[in-house]
Design a protein around this nucleic acid. Structure first.
Length: 217
DNA sequence: TAGTCGCG
DNA sequence: CGAC
């Protein structure tokens, strides 16, 4: 079931936007918390450098990616999977910053998913030319566990689709500090990012980071 | 097939 | 929106 209209997040007082029975956008009022989240990105990237992945068919992704947690999401010629080591450094992924996992657990709770304990966080860095085609998150072992996505930096146009790739997606503008949580009947909804929009971010410049916290195992 | 193209 |  796809929304028949576009959702535009232009009212700052709006805290929650329902995307489905078990999917919601949570917007933070102020951003001291978001600033703290941003500060931890630098820590993680220092030990876990961004790199460019490609689809199993060999098409490069337009985002740069890295991970933290016990597992990291990976795409390579053999398919999508979770791996325990950074493919370039061969080192174990750094720990998920406590501020990130605590916030993800809290957001999941808010969305109706109790005791969410992420073991992986995918970090996607978007530039002005980056986008993400419609896809499903389905490499996780237990699909009863939700997905928590945190937006930082420039705003972006989020595509919220249906259970089939051809379903027409709703458009949702995501801003710095916004979180999207989805699970249950909405867990396999197709989603993507059309493009960045608005002004460069004061701290991050013409960049957006998306933190996707999941339970891989 | 987490990308991109070609057709309408 | 199907096809690769």
């Amino acid at each position: 079931m796809t929304a028949s209209f576009d959702l535009f997040a232009d009212s700052p007082e709006e805290q929650r936007v329902a995307l489905g029975p078990q999917a919601v956008v949570l917007r933070q009022k102020a951003s001291p918390l978001a600033a703290e989240l941003v500060a931890r990105i630098e820590d993680v990237l220092q030990h876990s450098p961004l790199y460019q992945m490609a689809t199993p068919g060999g098409k490069p992704l337009s985002v740069r990616t890295t991970s933290c947690g016990t597992h990291g999401w990976s795409s390579d010629p053999t398919g999508y999977s979770y791996v325990r080591h950074h493919p370039l450094t061969d080192q174990a992924w750094p720990e998920i910053p406590a501020a990130w996992s605590a916030l993800a657990t809290e957001a999941a709770q808010e969305a109706g998913f109790a005791q969410f304990a992420p073991d992986t966080c995918l970090i996607n860095q978007y530039g002005l030319d980056s986008k993400m085609a419609l896809h499903q998150d389905r490499s996780e072992q237990d699909l009863r566990q939700p997905v928590v996505s945190i937006s930082l930096g420039m705003s972006a146009l989020f595509l919220w689709g249906g259970m089939q790739r051809s379903d027409k997606p709703a458009h949702v503008l995501l801003h710095h500090g916004d979180m999207v949580v989805w699970g249950g009947v909405d867990r396999l909804r197709f989603h993507g990012i059309k493009h960045l929009t608005g002004a460069p971010h004061p701290q991050l410049g013409a960049m957006r980071y998306n933190l996707t916290l999941r339970r891989a195992r």
